[in-house]
C-alpha cells in the first residue's frame, strides 16, 4: 500500500520579520507529525523559488513593495487555501507604522537628510523592489480565506490551526490561543 498523499503547503514572508516562520518551527516535536502530513513547496524552508499547485499557502507579513505583490499573487493563483499568518499579514503590523507618513518623506529622511549621511541618494538599483505608497494587509490585495492572528501566533496556535485545516475542520482557535500581541 502506498503512503497517503501529502498535503502541499507553501509559505512566504513578505513585509515581516520571519517571526511567524520562527514560530512555525516552535511547534517542536509536532514538526515530525507535520512533515508526515505535508510536503513543503515554495518556502524559505525549501528554497524553492516559485510556487506550484498547493493546498495551503501561509503568508507572513504585509505588502510593502512590488515584489510582495508578485509573490502574493503567485500564492493566490496556486494555493486553494490562503492564510494570513500574524499581525503584519492581517493588519500591516509594524511595517505599516510608516503609513502615517508620506513615502516621499520616509525615503528622503532615510537616504538624504539623515544626520551623518554621506553620499546621499535614494537607491535606484533595479534589483531592489520599489516601495508602495502604503503598506497593506494582504486581504486588501487578494482574497484571503483564513486569518491566524498573533505577533507572532504561538507555535501552539499555529499547530492547532494547521491541525484543524489538515483534518478538514474549519480552524477555530481556543480562547487561550487567541492573541493579537
Amino acid at each position: 500500500m502506498s503512503a497517503p498523499e501529502k498535503t502541499r503547503v507553501a509559505t512566504a514572508s513578505l513585509a515581516g520579520c520571519f517571526g511567524c516562520h520562527m514560530s512555525l518551527l516552535d511547534i517542536d516535536e509536532h514538526l515530525f507529525e507535520l512533515v508526515e502530513k505535508v510536503e513543503f513547496d515554495r518556502s524559505p524552508l525549501t528554497d524553492i523559488k516559485h510556487c506550484g499547485a498547493c493546498e495551503i499557502g501561509l503568508i507572513e507579513g504585509g505588502v510593502c513593495n512590488a515584489e510582495n505583490i508578485h509573490v502574493l499573487r503567485e500564492f493566490r493563483q496556486h494555493c486553494k487555501i490562503l492564510v494570513a499568518v500574524g499581525a503584519c499579514a492581517i493588519n500591516g503590523g509594524l511595517p505599516a507604522q510608516r503609513n502615517y507618513f508620506k513615502l516621499d518623506d520616509c525615503l528622503r529622511q532615510v537616504y538624504q537628510y539623515r544626520i551623518g549621511m554621506t553620499d546621499a541618494g535614494i537607491p535606484d538599483d533595479p534589483e531592489l523592489p520599489l516601495l508602495l505608497e502604503r503598506v497593506h494587509p494582504i486581504h486588501e490585495i487578494v482574497r484571503v480565506d483564513y486569518f491566524l492572528p498573533g505577533c507572532p501566533p504561538s507555535g501552539e496556535a499555529i499547530w492547532s490551526f494547521l491541525s484543524d485545516l489538515l483534518a478538514g475542520r474549519t480552524p477555530r482557535l481556543p480562547y487561550s490561543l487567541m492573541h493579537f500581541d
Partner: peptide, 23 residues
C-alpha cells in the same frame, strides 16, 4: 491584554478586520 476592545475581539473570535483599513 487589558484592552476591552481587544478582549471583545478575542471572545467574539474576530480574527481579521475584513474591511480595508482607514489608517
Amino acid at each position: 491584554g487589558n484592552c476591552q476592545l481587544q478582549a471583545q475581539a478575542y471572545e467574539l473570535e474576530m480574527t481579521s478586520a475584513r474591511f480595508d483599513y482607514l489608517f
